[in-house]
Amino acid sequence: MSDDLTRDELAAFDGIGERWAELRSQLQRVIVGQDEAIDTLLTALLCQSHVLVVGVPGLAKTLLVRTLAAAVDLAFKRIQFTPDLMPSDIIGTELIQEDPATGERRLRFMPGPLFAQLLLADEINRTPPRTQAALLEAMAEHQVTAAGQTRPLDEPFVVVATQNPIEQEGTYPLPEAQLDRFLFSLWMDYPTKAAEKRIVAESPRIASESIQPVMSAEQLVRDASLVWRMPVSEHVVDVAVSLARATRPGDADASATVRQYVGWGAGPRAGQALVHAAKAAAAMAGEPTPSTAHVKAVAMHVLRHRVLLNYAAAGEGVDVKQIIDTVVAEADF
């Protein structure tokens, strides 16, 4: 770590691996067969960044986020996004209230469910763009504007949004600008047969599990600050930037596959995300600085929602995972 850290900060950094291993253990008591999802969500939380989770119903997405909130003692709220949801429904609104003592009537702001530390935005693509835009401001600025006033949100503020990959009728696809605000796009798959048997057999035990907080919100913010200041080598930065640039069909170093099937590649924020996520992965592993292996480990989740395929890819059945796999395989690690 950097020499400008105090002795207490160095000690706190050295304890990140142990603290987050205990946090992972708490989640694994309840969430069975989704270890990759757990690790990805923990990495995003340590970055204090947002996650878009794509998966069919029944994969314990809500349970995972709710359990995480309990284990870190975060204020948790869930919003079920629907076509008739308005911005005021999630931000809050001003109501006229009468003071019982004086009889004076005045406007009072009643905060909506957006005022949380860990927010589950369920089926985010089912709400119109106007409401999506209200969430975008909160995600990007950690503040909301209501009744002409800007109101800050409590820290940490992390959004975990979900989408169902099957039912697309009557949905409003997220614009690229909003997708880019998510650090990760996490695709949750069905558990293995062995894990599914455990889930079915242990349902009563899982339902009765009591999750104890192993970390406070304040400790999370401190850990996230230390990770942000973690040193990173020029080589790791070069690999991250090269990966992002390799997804752009107009770049001189783009592969033939990218030129053939990609319409738009990842922007500069992708390189920043790769490095930041690699730092968090390294810290949770108890390592003092990220390596190219950490960049490679987070590349799929960072790049998947930032690469847009063209009509040729759709016509030939090429998906974005294949493109990212090719880009990572051809990268010079």
Rank of each mutant, 00 (worst) to 15 (best):
163 Q>P: 10
308 L>R: 09
213 P>F: 15
279 K>C: 02
69 A>R: 03
227 V>D: 09
314 A>M: 13
17 G>H: 08
100 P>K: 03
188 M>G: 09
300 M>A: 08
77 K>N: 14
331 A>Q: 10
237 V>I: 07
84 D>V: 13
247 T>F: 09
134 A>S: 12
263 G>R: 10
271 G>P: 12
18 E>Y: 13
214 V>K: 01
200 V>Y: 15
54 V>L: 15
260 Q>C: 01
243 L>F: 14
169 E>D: 11
207 A>G: 14
292 T>D: 11
69 A>D: 05
154 D>E: 12
227 V>M: 07
263 G>D: 08
215 M>G: 06
247 T>M: 07
24 R>Y: 07
230 M>P: 08
263 G>P: 01
192 T>S: 15
271 G>L: 11
224 A>M: 09
211 I>V: 15
56 V>C: 10
75 A>Q: 14
85 L>G: 03
211 I>W: 07
236 V>Q: 08
21 A>C: 10
37 A>G: 11
328 V>I: 05
210 S>Q: 15
207 A>T: 14
271 G>F: 14
255 S>V: 04
301 H>R: 12
143 Q>K: 14
236 V>G: 06
65 V>L: 04
96 I>N: 00
6 T>P: 10
146 A>T: 08
231 P>I: 12
68 L>P: 01
16 I>M: 13
46 L>T: 11
54 V>T: 12
327 V>P: 07
237 V>H: 10
14 D>E: 15
83 P>G: 05
29 R>T: 10
218 E>Q: 14
242 S>D: 15
70 A>E: 14
93 T>Q: 00
252 A>W: 04
45 L>C: 12
111 P>Q: 02
201 A>M: 13
179 L>F: 03
160 V>G: 05
105 R>H: 00
143 Q>C: 09
291 S>W: 02
137 E>A: 08
102 T>D: 00
25 S>E: 09
86 M>G: 00
184 F>R: 03
109 F>C: 08
271 G>H: 06
44 A>M: 11
41 L>I: 09
42 L>I: 06
67 T>R: 02
